[in-house]
Computed example of a mutant assay.
Amino acid sequence: MTSQILHRTAHLEPGTGRTVHGLAVPFGQVVEIDDAYGSYRERFERGAFRRTIADRAHKVKLFTQHDRRRLPIGKATELRETDDGLFAAFEVAATTAGDDALELIRSGVVDNFSIGFRPMRDRRDGDIVTRTEVALLEVSLVSDPRLPGRARGRRALARRPRYPFYRGRSTTSVARPLKEEPHATL
Rank of each mutant, 00 (worst) to 15 (best):
A93E: 15
V129Y: 01
G153Q: 09
R152S: 13
V129K: 04
T130F: 03
R167L: 08
R176Y: 05
V110F: 13
A156C: 09
I115G: 02
E78H: 13
V109D: 13
S143E: 11
R70T: 11
G85N: 04
G85W: 05
R131A: 13
A57Q: 08
R155G: 08
V174H: 13
V92A: 01
R68A: 15
Y166I: 08
D111Y: 10
N112R: 14
P164A: 07
L141G: 02
L86T: 01
T64F: 04
R80I: 03
G168Y: 07
R167M: 07
S170Y: 07
L136W: 14
E133G: 02
Q65L: 10
G168L: 04
H66P: 02
D144M: 09
L62H: 00
E138G: 05
V60M: 04
R159P: 00
P72G: 14
N112C: 12
R176T: 14
A175T: 11
A88W: 03
P177V: 05
A94R: 10
I115S: 13
I105H: 10
R176F: 07
E103N: 03
P145E: 10
A57V: 02
P72W: 14
K75S: 14
R118D: 01
D67G: 02
L136T: 12
A158K: 11
G98T: 05
G74C: 11
V92P: 00
A101I: 06
A57D: 01
R121M: 13
E103K: 05
D127R: 08
R162W: 04
R152Q: 10
R146S: 15
A151S: 15
R69W: 12
H66C: 13
S173Q: 13
D84T: 01
T77H: 02
G149N: 08
T171S: 11
V142K: 05
G85E: 04
R80T: 06
R80P: 00
R80L: 12
G149R: 06
A94G: 01
V110N: 05
P177C: 07
R69Y: 13
S107D: 11
D111A: 14
L137C: 13
F113D: 00
L79V: 06
S143C: 06
R154E: 08
E133L: 09
E91M: 09
L141C: 11
R167H: 02
F90K: 02
